Computed example of a mutant assay.
Amino acid sequence: MTRSELRAVWESRISDCRTSGQSVAAWCATHQINPRQYYYWLRKLSNTEMPSPRWLEVCADQQPSNETDSCLQVKIGSAVIEVKPGFNRDLLADVVLALQTIC
């Protein structure tokens, strides 16, 4: 397999993992891939140009409109982020960035 073919394979694998909703460990176990090898390629490819992240559709469940209890729940895989009125925008941006780099 040529280097460019191997790079394409790993770009596809990393994209598949990110869109699977599974943790890296669970995805690697399912696909019989060593997590160290996954992280090696993730680092290697993050130093090169990767496709831009895509926005996902957010579906909000209807909840009572009690202002003191209102919040937005963002679910990414098994992670759940609750965003309440008056939230810290910088903290939310840091958390989203961290989740993007994990999987």
Rank of each mutant, 00 (worst) to 15 (best):
T2N: 11
R3Y: 07
R3K: 09
S4Y: 07
E5C: 04
L6S: 10
R7W: 03
A8N: 09
A8E: 13
V9W: 03
W10G: 01
W10V: 01
E11A: 05
R13H: 10
R13S: 04
R13C: 05
I14K: 01
I14P: 00
S15W: 05
S15A: 12
D16I: 06
D16P: 01
D16M: 08
C17W: 02
C17T: 02
C17S: 06
R18N: 05
R18F: 14
T19R: 11
T19Y: 15
T19D: 13
S20R: 02
S20I: 11
Q22G: 03
S23K: 03
V24H: 01
A25R: 09
A26E: 12
W27R: 02
C28A: 08
H31A: 09
H31E: 13
H31T: 10
Q32T: 14
I33G: 01
I33Q: 02
N34R: 08
P35E: 05
R36Y: 15
R36G: 14
R36Q: 15
Q37T: 15
Q37F: 09
Y38K: 03
Y38F: 15
Y39S: 15
L42A: 12
L42I: 13
K44W: 02
K44N: 07
L45K: 01
L45Q: 03
S46H: 14
S46F: 11
N47R: 14
E49P: 10
M50I: 15
M50Y: 11
P51E: 14
S52F: 06
P53T: 03
P53N: 05
R54L: 14
R54P: 09
R54S: 13
W55I: 00
E57F: 05
E57W: 01
V58T: 02
V58H: 06
V58E: 04
C59G: 07
C59A: 05
C59Y: 03
A60R: 00
A60S: 02
Q62W: 00
Q63W: 01
Q63R: 07
P64S: 05
P64F: 06
P64Q: 04
S65A: 04
N66G: 00
T68H: 03
S70L: 12
C71Q: 14
C71L: 14
L72Q: 05
L72E: 04
Q73F: 13
Q73D: 12
V74Q: 06
V74P: 04
V74W: 08
I76L: 11
S78L: 02
V80Y: 00
V80R: 03
V80E: 07
I81E: 05
I81A: 04
V83M: 09
V83F: 08
V83A: 09
V83E: 06
K84R: 13
P85R: 04
G86Q: 10
G86T: 08
G86W: 09
F87D: 08
N88F: 06
N88H: 11
R89A: 12
R89S: 12
D90E: 09
D90F: 07
L92D: 11
D94N: 09
D94P: 00
V95T: 13
V96I: 15
V96P: 00
L97A: 10
L97Q: 03
A98T: 07
L99T: 03
Q100D: 11
Q100V: 06
T101P: 00
T101Y: 06
T101Q: 08
T101E: 10
T101F: 06
C103R: 07
C103G: 12
